[in-house]
Amino acid sequence: MTEIRTPRLLLRRWTDDDLVPLSEINADPEVMRWIDDGSVRDLEETAGDIERYEEEWDEEGFGLFAVELLGSGELIGFAGLSVQDSLPDVGITWRLGRQFWGQGYASEAAHAVLEWALQDRGLDRVVAVTHISDHASENVAGKLGMKPGRETDHPVHGTPLRVHAIDLTEYRA
């Protein structure tokens, strides 16, 4: 089983116990405002999401990790890698419950995932796609050393996006 430990977090594969806490995160309009069209997700949709996350692990050898606090075992969200539908790149992504914002957890989890992607998974390049108005996620991408690049629109919802990227040579520098 693939796991990554950071000083405060455990990044791990999904379990049945993760469904309710993730559905509570996905039901928060403030959390979801920068995701796709901003719609919240219910329990059934979240179950389908987790199923797709696990399928990507099986198909690609990477995916989205459930992120829990080491001290309490509480699920706080996810961070990981996914194949980008409209780009030829693998993207890093994160989503945390609102009560966990502003504490450095997203940067800590994303940094661990980026290191794992470039060093253990052998990827040469990783992107992060952020909504242009999502300053918190843009800040996390910057903390990862990613450079903002081209702007595009979401292929389905038309929202303005920015693609940030880092390659292996930039990461090691």
Rank of each mutant, 00 (worst) to 15 (best):
E3K: 14
E3W: 11
E3I: 14
R5W: 10
T6N: 01
P7Q: 01
P7R: 00
L9P: 00
L10R: 05
L10V: 13
L11M: 10
D16Y: 04
D16C: 08
D17P: 10
D17R: 11
D18I: 00
D18N: 07
L19Q: 02
L19C: 07
V20I: 13
V20Y: 08
S23H: 13
E24L: 13
N26Q: 15
N26E: 14
D28N: 14
D28R: 05
D28P: 00
D28G: 07
P29V: 06
E30D: 15
V31D: 03
V31A: 04
M32N: 05
R33W: 03
R33Y: 04
W34N: 15
S39C: 11
V40M: 12
R41D: 11
D42S: 04
L43P: 01
E44G: 08
A47S: 14
R52L: 14
R52W: 10
Y53C: 10
E54R: 14
E56D: 12
W57D: 09
D58W: 08
G61C: 12
G61L: 03
L64H: 12
L64F: 06
L64A: 13
F65P: 02
A66M: 03
A66D: 06
L70D: 07
S72H: 11
E74T: 06
E74L: 03
L75M: 04
I76T: 01
I76Y: 01
A79C: 15
A79T: 01
A79P: 00
G80H: 00
G80N: 04
L81K: 14
V83W: 01
V83R: 11
D85G: 08
S86V: 05
P88T: 01
G91C: 04
I92T: 03
I92W: 03
T93G: 11
R95T: 12
R95H: 02
R95S: 12
L96H: 01
L96T: 01
G97F: 06
G97I: 00
G97M: 13
R98P: 03
R98T: 07
W101F: 12
G102E: 08
G102Y: 09
Q103M: 13
Q103G: 10
G104E: 06
Y105W: 07
A106V: 07
A109I: 08
A109M: 04
H111N: 13
H111E: 13
A112H: 04
A112E: 09
V113Q: 01
E115Y: 02
W116R: 10
A117W: 09
L118R: 04
Q119L: 15
R121W: 11
R125P: 02
R125N: 04
V126G: 03
V129P: 10
T130S: 15
H131N: 15
I132R: 15
D134N: 15
A136P: 12
S137F: 01
S137W: 09
E138T: 09
V140R: 00
V140P: 06
L144C: 09
L144P: 10
M146P: 08
M146W: 00
K147T: 13
K147P: 07
P148C: 07
P148G: 11
G149F: 08
R150W: 03
E151F: 08
T152V: 12
D153N: 07
P155G: 04
P155E: 05
H157G: 09
G158K: 03
G158R: 05
L161E: 02
L161D: 00
L161M: 06
L161C: 05
R162H: 03
V163Q: 05
H164S: 11
I166N: 01
T169V: 09
T169K: 14
T169N: 08
A173G: 14
